[in-house]
Design a protein around this nucleic acid. Structure first.
Lengths: 271, 271
DNA sequence: AACGCTGTTCCGCTTAAGAGAACATACCAC
DNA sequence: GTGGTATGTTCTCTTAAGCGGAACAGCGTT
């Protein structure tokens, strides 16, 4: 097997990486709708041999992180549930945002969401939401990583990232269009983000979900960096343009409260 | 290095076990009250060298499971929070027990709890509770593994384990006395468990917490095995003996409902 | 300047992680 | 019954990744 020194594509995952494999298994188990899993089924998802998967499962079972079903299959174990439950109870941002989110949902009458930013992968996800009581409403998809370049929820974060990081994202090889309304032109996106910084909030229509409108404002952490954002989302048709200022103020206030609660500081404007 | 064949105590942890180490790190981070952690601090907790801890932290960071703070320390990462949150949302037993717990708390007026059983370690923990609105109430300590031999919450589970497993626990070298009221005599415990099976519920006074009284009934899984229990706890002084039957019925009903919801079957009595 | 602390990197040794084949068992079709 | 094909499990062997220890690079204090 000669390792071609040429422009090799694949990032070459480490040939041995039990840690990553183990968490892949847990991720698959947690994310899938299935209740139990077979050895070879998991092995193929991980692209490893059945024996490797088997040993991994054994190791995880010893730790209590996965458990066996009566029919010799595998499922998520109690120790992982314990850890997971304990972790969710102390997620600082989520805790800090709980009250502001409730207040925002009540004040605006629309679905309020909390987005969290992951600096490592330059992505965001919706961590919590308080749903509006309108019979017609968008249901926010929680706990899935999403790109920053589409939608107000991404823009409110993206606009306040360090210029270097921001540039890296906006000038990516290709800004994937999620919908027809997604901004895919780097310059246009940069201009849009400048507006976001100027106004203190982001607003978008149908960039991520056709027909959905969102308003979002950034939440900052202890060192002035963005850690996430708070916003509202509603069907486009329900939005009253004369109410934009009111809604935006509510969103910005909620985000500012969360920033304070999480012990964060809003950075100075550097336009 | 001669491996003494004698009665060696330590279970000899594998010299290399990155998986276990990694989860120890996450456990420590999640369970501790601290916000961030240093390399050597974690290394000493794990009894590994600083370099090992450092590499583990790096690997975990690559996976997004931990993140770095601004002051070069480490904290729990977003990917773990995401996984944790997704996991808690689909814990079958907790979901199944939610409504019965609420109903039980309302009907009894006392704190209702859900205990889950871990077959691997023969332990239980309180996974959820709905607190009573009495100003005086015991606050259940959640998400900590506890032994089965003390308290109604343990007994309701222990009494319905397979005889072999039960015997293994009741006849342990030493039944640790949690309080003065903890049953530490195997025969006495066995007799008590027989009563639990006969009545369908367990009741205890101060076996785990002095002055606390609890009533609990088992929840069974799809194959007739105990998966946990549901019960109530209250200050001893508030308990009205003439109400025992009423409360017990409420508890048993809640547990039976949860059993049904989780797709479980109540096994036949084999006295 | 000398210390103590921090996170980090380097280097050899060792061993467990990994693939692949063989095994045991169960089910289903013929 | 027999062949086929699933399943989980257990081998064996090679290789590289995990590990500790020592050395390094920054800080802040003494």
């Amino acid at each position: 097997m000669d390792t071609t020194p040429g422009p090799d594509r694949t990032p070459a995952p480490r040939p041995r990486d039990p840690l990553a494999r183990a968490f892949q298994i847990l991720s698959i188990m947690v994310e899938s709708d299935d209740e139990s899993f077979g050895v070879r089924q998991l092995a193929s998802r991980l692209s490893v041999s059945a024996s490797t998967a088997h040993r991994l499962l054994n190791d995880l079972e010893k730790l209590g992180l996965i458990a066996r079903t009566a029919d010799a299959n595998y499922q998520v174990g109690h120790e992982f549930y314990r850890l997971a439950w304990a972790a969710t109870a102390r997620f600082p941002l989520r805790q800090a945002a709980r009250e502001p989110l409730r207040d925002l949902a009540r004040a605006s009458g629309e679905t309020a969401f909390l987005g969290v930013y992951d600096d490592l992968h330059h992505q965001m996800m919706f961590a919590t939401c308080v749903e509006s009581r309108h019979p017609l409403r968008y249901v926010v998809e929680l706990n899935r990583w999403m790109p920053l370049h589409a939608g107000a929820s991404g823009h409110a974060i993206l606009a306040h990232l360090p210029p270097a990081v921001r540039a890296e994202i906006t000038s990516a090889d290709r800004l994937e269009p999620i919908t027809d309304a997604t901004i895919t032109d780097p310059q246009q996106l940069d201009a849009s983000l400048a507006e976001v910084r100027k106004h203190g909030y982001a607003m978008s229509r149908g960039q991520r979900i056709p027909g959905a409108l969102a308003i979002a404002a950034p939440v900052f952490g202890p060192h002035g960096g963005v850690v996430g954002d708070i916003g509202i989302t509603m069907p486009d048709g329900r939005f009253d343009p004369t109410q934009e200022a009111t809604l935006a103020t509510q969103v910005v206030t909620a985000a500012a409260t969360a920033t304070t609660r999480v012990g964060g500081t809003t950075p100075e404007h550097t336009p």
